[in-house]
């Protein structure tokens, strides 16, 4: 297998032709990458995920600025010091912002015309955490057009046996009266 002969490309810039690829004039090889990796959640997110498995949302407090932070973190990025107490917060909250998305997570088009419900991710300020402290999650069980900033929502959990210590242990949030 050879690269394109130098005289063919010398002095000009052009795209490759299908014929050159098929005939082996261009170096082509198959490679199956092994992309195994491990992810260390760190102490704060690990506890957060473990508590989601228990059906609870846990936050962490900074005793200097008194913020209750969610997701929990081992440091307060405003006070620049280690954070302090673990505190449980509610599984209810308020929509800070949202979109009605016609594209999926992979930027593909959803078949809205065919009746597929748009994705409606939202930043939800969690009750018990400080004002402005939110998490990103999905809103469902509501007509997308009815979603509003300031709407009150509550977590819909997977049954305990299906939970695996993931943010998806909460299926979505739905409006509450």
């Amino acid at each position: 297998m050879e690269l394109i002969p130098k005289e063919k490309v010398d002095g000009t810039v052009r795209g490759l032709k299908r014929k050159e690829l098929d005939s082996g004039e261009v170096l082509v090889f198959d490679w199956e990458p092994k992309l195994a990796y491990a992810w260390d959640d760190g102490p704060a997110i690990a506890r957060y995920l473990a508590e989601l498995k228990n059906g609870r949302i846990i936050a962490k407090k900074c005793n200097k600025c008194h913020r209750v932070m969610i997701p929990p973190r081992m440091f307060c990025e405003l006070c620049w010091r280690p954070s302090d107490d673990w505190v449980f917060v509610e599984d209810t909250g308020t929509i800070n912002t949202f979109v009605i998305s016609n594209v999926d997570w992979k930027a593909g088009r959803l078949d809205i015309e065919g009746g597929v419900r748009p994705f409606t991710p939202a930043v939800i300020e969690i009750d018990g955490a400080s004002r402005g402290m939110g998490i990103l999650h999905l809103i469902d069980d509501v007509d997308p057009q009815k979603i509003e900033i300031g709407m009150r929502v509550k977590a819909v959990w997977k049954p305990p046996e299906e939970r695996e210590g993931s943010i998806t242990d909460i299926r979505y949030f739905k409006p509450v009266e």
């Binding site: 997701p71 973190r73 990025e77 405003l78 930043v123 402005g132 402290m133 939110g134 998490i135 990103l136």
Partner: peptide, 10 residues
Amino acid sequence: DTAYWCTRDL
């Protein structure tokens, strides 16, 4: 700013 973007003024 903080990388916790759900924590900021958006």
